[in-house]
């Protein structure tokens, strides 16, 4: 029993690695994608839109398989499962975060830019001090939902053989002819998401001092 728990904790560490690495890369990358999606250059806008549509229009499980096997078929080389898994998650989540950022950016009244311009703020100052704080507040709820989805999506990494929490639980379950490990995994996911949603509630509260 205790060795099962140790295994499951190891799986959890892997799940958390997928979770944090995905956030680390896709939160900023999503921003770059959002800018591209709002680019003045039509072809850039179109390509970025196509990418977002593909990411949203196909299952993540399929994307995982694609990113794991594509290098092998294309270049005859392959890379390890974990890297493939991170690449797939980052590419997928950047698209989702980009759409959230874009809706946030577009919800800011153009009067905010105009007032900033008339007051003499430079473009980057306007962005970081006037626009971005308001965008962050606006997108907090949508971002919270997406991050919770990410916690659950990490379970999909098992399709390409990454030994994350759910795979460990399933393996143990069939080995011991018991659903207990699956149930324990459920509790683990629930606890992780409980923490995530608490953090977002706190953040939203902290930003609740205006409007």
């Amino acid at each position: 029993m205790s060795s099962l728990l140790v295994q499951m904790l190891e799986g959890t560490v892997t799940s958390l690695q997928i979770f944090f690495l995905t956030l680390l890369f896709s939160l900023p990358l999503g921003f770059v994608v959002a800018r591209g999606r709002m680019s003045k250059i039509r072809i850039v806008r179109w390509l970025i839109d196509l990418y977002i549509q593909i990411m949203r229009g196909t299952p993540l499980i399929l994307q995982l398989i694609f990113f794991y096997f594509a290098p092998f078929y294309l270049f005859g080389a392959s890379y390890d499962r974990f890297t493939a898994c991170i690449v797939a998650f980052v590419v997928n989540y950047s698209a989702y975060f980009a759409e959230i950022y874009r809706s946030g950016l577009q919800s800011i009244d153009k009067g905010q830019y105009e007032a900033s311009h008339v007051l003499g703020f430079r473009k980057s100052y306007t962005f970081f001090h006037i626009i971005l704080p308001q965008v962050i507040k606006k997108i907090m709820p949508a971002l919270g939902n997406e991050v919770i989805t990410l916690v659950k999506d990490t379970a999909l990494a098992q399709t390409i053989g990454v030994a994350e929490l759910f795979r460990v639980a399933q393996t143990a379950s069939s080995r011991e002819f018991s659903t207990v490990p699956i149930f324990i995994a459920g509790i683990f996911y629930f606890v992780m998401n409980y923490i995530v949603s608490r953090i977002f509630v706190l953040a939203e509260k902290k930003l609740d001092y205006y409007r």
Partner: peptide, 22 residues
Amino acid sequence: FQSFNLFPHFNVLRNITEAQRA
């Protein structure tokens, strides 16, 4: 402006000091 366009995330004082400082 007709629609004021104050910065909602700054208090009144900061609305008035921000550009003076920056």
